[in-house]
């Protein structure tokens, strides 16, 4: 009778993993990545939008009754949003806060309201006063670009498919209106 095969089990046998090849690979990879890594990532303020939003921006110039949204930035008075619609001008002010600083939270809320009323408009005409710094301008652009509240969506009509599209973009197309002044 053939005996049943029983594997020999070594009670406390220890297998040591040879880490040397792994270490060799890492030693080569780390310098390569160290050299090619960008620790300060430079980005670019520009519109990179979904296709339908891009088309909507291009189409806004062809709208029969063009609506324009202007934003004046003043260190003393704060923000002033002006909407020109159907020949009528609506103005809304966002004054400086208690600390005499520009109220970006208030601006974001005000722009959300303007965007809800005019979802087809994606361009904002920015007019900062000469003393406003670049840091403040970029911050204003950030506030105007996208809705921070994910629940707030703006509905506009896609001219190609003739259907409603939702977006969280507000005013990604920024024009310096007072550049030529």
């Amino acid at each position: 009778m053939r005996g049943k095969f029983k594997p020999r089990i070594h009670g406390s046998a220890e297998v040591e993993l040879d880490l040397a090849p792994l270490l060799a690979v890492m030693v080569k990879l780390v310098p390569v990545l160290l050299i090619s890594s960008a620790f300060v990532q430079v980005m670019m303020v520009e519109t990179d939008l979904p296709q339908v939003v891009k088309e909507a921006i291009q189409n806004q110039d062809n709208l029969p009754k063009k609506t324009t949204v202007g934003l004046e930035v003043s260190r003393a008075e704060g923000f002033k949003i002006t909407t020109l619609k159907d020949g009528q001008t609506f103005a809304q002010a966002v004054p400086v806060n208690a600390a005499k600083e520009l109220d970006y939270v208030g601006l974001h809320k005000a722009l959300q309201k303007v965007k809800t009323d005019n979802p087809e408009v994606f361009r904002i005409e920015l007019s900062p006063e000469p003393s406003i710094t670049q840091k403040e301008i970029v911050k204003v652009m950030d506030e105007a670009r996208k809705s921070r509240n994910k629940d707030v969506k703006f509905i506009f009509v896609d001219s190609k498919k003739n259907e409603e599209v939702q977006t969280d973009f507000m005013f990604p197309d920024v024009v310096f209106a007072n550049m030529m002044e």
């Binding site: 990545l33 960008a38 620790f39 980005m43 970029v138 652009m141 950030d142 670009r145």
Partner: peptide, 27 residues
Amino acid sequence: TFSTSDVQIIPEKDVRLPTSTVENNPV
């Protein structure tokens, strides 16, 4: 931290760039 951007911009020594929430890689 490895950047996959096509263009690498090296900031100038004396220029302190503003921070932004924008995520567009430079072209």
